Structures are given as C-alpha cells and as structure tokens.
Simulated scan of single mutants.
Amino acid sequence: MEKHVNLIKLSVGTEGVDDLLAWQATPRAQTKDGLPRHVTRMWPKREPEILNGGSIYWVVKGLIQCRQRVLRLDEQTGADGIRRCAIVLDPDLIRTQSSLRRPFQGWRYLNPADAPPDLPIGREDEEPLPVDLSRALAEIGIL
C-alpha cells in the first residue's frame, strides 16, 4: 500500500474555523462543481502521495485547528496566463487537536506522523477554546 502525505497551509485573514468555512462557502472559493478549493502558484511534486489519502491541515491564528481531505488537483490558468494549482477539498472539515505552528509562506508537506490527531468522536462539535488559551496550552505541551 502506498503511503500518503499531507499539506499544511496558513489560513490567512481568518479568526477561526468558522471564518474558514464561511470563505469556502463563497463562489470565489469554489470549483464549478461547488467544492471548496485553494488556489496556489506551485504544483505539488508529490501529487500521487497527496491524492492517496492526504489532507490539507489549516493553521488558524498560529495553531493547526482542522483539516480537509484533498480530492484532486485542478489546473487553473489565471487572467495573467500563469498556470496555477487549485487544491480541491472535501467540504467536510475535520477539527483536530490544536498544534502550535510558526508562520511560513505558501504550503508545506506534512508527514502523517507529524500531523495532530483528529478530535475524538463526540468532541468535534465542542466550542473551541479561545485562541490565546489554546496557544498557551500548546506552548507548554498540554494540547
């Protein structure tokens, strides 16, 4: 069985997971078939591994807070004629345990062993902790 690899990306401008969901519900952030997407300049070289069960882990306010399964990579050409990659995502967003991350540009690969676990069944709908509290707990290794 082939292994998979994940992506990790900052969700710039969002205050929480609900903001990310609201953005993905806009027509600008969706494919023609209504799926959420994230458009990026670079095409992942590890495409087969990503499409073999990989997810994109979203960093919101310095913490990984959720993930979405990557369904496909679509080629998209901008108005400037430049080829870009639309990372097409499963609309189901899965909340994860919070994990502290420093800022970075673009996206990065994230090995499954380094990814935070999903929240346990029954906790995924809990009200998230305030970002400052989550960050403080992650810094001391509790979250």
Rank of each mutant, 00 (worst) to 15 (best):
M1W: 12
M1C: 06
E2K: 15
H4I: 15
L7M: 13
L7I: 11
I8E: 01
L10N: 03
S11A: 15
G13E: 09
G13C: 09
T14V: 15
E15Y: 01
G16R: 04
D18E: 15
L20D: 00
A22Q: 14
T26M: 09
A29E: 10
A29P: 04
K32S: 14
L35S: 00
L35N: 01
P36Y: 06
H38E: 02
H38Y: 03
M42Q: 11
M42W: 14
P44C: 09
P48S: 08
E49A: 14
L51Y: 08
S55N: 13
S55F: 10
I56E: 00
G62E: 00
L63R: 05
Q65C: 14
Q65S: 15
C66R: 02
C66S: 12
R67G: 06
L71K: 13
R72W: 03
L73H: 08
D74Y: 07
D74F: 07
A86L: 01
L89Q: 05
D90N: 06
D90R: 02
P91S: 00
D92K: 08
Q97P: 06
S99H: 07
P103A: 07
P103C: 05
Q105L: 14
G106H: 08
L110F: 04
N111G: 06
D114G: 02
D114S: 09
P117G: 13
P117W: 08
P120R: 00
P120G: 05
P120C: 04
I121A: 15
I121M: 06
G122Y: 01
G122V: 05
P128I: 01
P128L: 00
L129S: 10
L129P: 04
V131Q: 06
V131D: 09
V131R: 04
V131E: 04
L133P: 10
R135D: 12
A136C: 11
A136R: 11
E139G: 07
E139R: 06
I140V: 15
I140P: 07
